[in-house]
C-alpha cells in the first residue's frame, strides 16, 4: 500500500523529463497533476508496476474551469489487490483540449472518455471510437456541460426551451 506522496516520488524518479505537481492543500483527496499528452505512459506505468498495480479505473470525469480558461480531467484509480487509491488530474487548454487516451490500459475508459468528449468537447487522442455517447449523434449545438453552453431553440423541429 502506498499513499499519494510516495507515488508522487516514484513518478518523479521514473519520468524525469515530465512535470508533476502534488496538491495536498485542498479539502478533497490529495491528487497529482500530470501532463495531458503523456497520461497514457504514466497510466501504463501505474498499471504495470507490481508495487502499484492500479488495475481499476473507478471514474474518469471532465471539469470545465472556465475562470482559468482550461478544461481538466480527473482520473480515480484503485488497486484491487494492494487496496490503495490514487487521484490524477490533467489540465488542457480550453481552446484546444487534447488528452491522450487510456483506453488501451483500462477498457472501461472507452465510454468514460466518450462521455467527456460528448459533454465537454475534450478530444482523446488515439481513442478507438470517439463519438458522442449520450447526446444525439447529430447534435450541433456544442457541448452541454461547458459553462458557456447555450441550448438551441429547436432540434429537428422540436422546441427545446420550456
Amino acid at each position: 500500500m502506498k499513499n499519494t506522496e510516495e507515488i508522487f516520488q516514484l513518478l518523479k524518479e521514473n519520468f524525469k523529463d515530465l512535470n508533476f505537481e502534488l496538491k495536498t492543500d485542498l479539502p478533497v483527496d490529495n491528487f497529482i497533476i500530470c501532463n495531458p499528452l503523456e497520461i497514457d505512459k504514466i497510466s501504463r506505468y501505474l498499471h504495470d508496476n507490481p508495487e502499484l498495480n492500479f488495475d481499476s479505473l473507478i471514474n474518469l470525469s471532465g471539469v470545465d474551469e472556465i475562470k482559468n480558461n482550461q478544461l481538466s480531467v480527473y482520473y480515480h484509480l484503485e488497486s484491487t489487490s494492494l487496496k490503495h487509491k490514487l487521484v490524477l488530474k490533467v489540465i488542457t487548454d480550453r481552446n484546444k483540449p487534447e488528452i491522450a487516451t487510456v483506453t488501451d490500459i483500462w477498457k472501461g475508459a472507452n465510454w468514460h472518455e466518450r462521455e467527456a468528449y460528448d459533454l465537454f468537447g475534450i478530444k482523446f487522442l488515439n481513442h478507438p471510437d470517439l463519438r458522442r455517447i449520450l447526446m444525439p449523434y447529430d447534435w450541433e449545438a456544442g457541448y452541454p456541460l461547458r459553462k458557456d453552453y447555450e441550448n438551441p431553440e429547436f432540434y429537428h423541429g422540436m422546441k427545446v426551451p420550456y
Partner: peptide, 20 residues
C-alpha cells in the same frame, strides 16, 4: 406531461411529449 424536474436545466429533455 411537461418536462417535470428537467423543465429548466434539462438541456436534453423534451418539455412535454405533446410537442411531438
Amino acid at each position: 406531461n411537461s418536462g417535470g424536474p428537467y423543465w429548466e436545466h434539462g438541456y436534453h429533455v423534451l418539455k412535454g411529449i405533446d410537442r411531438v
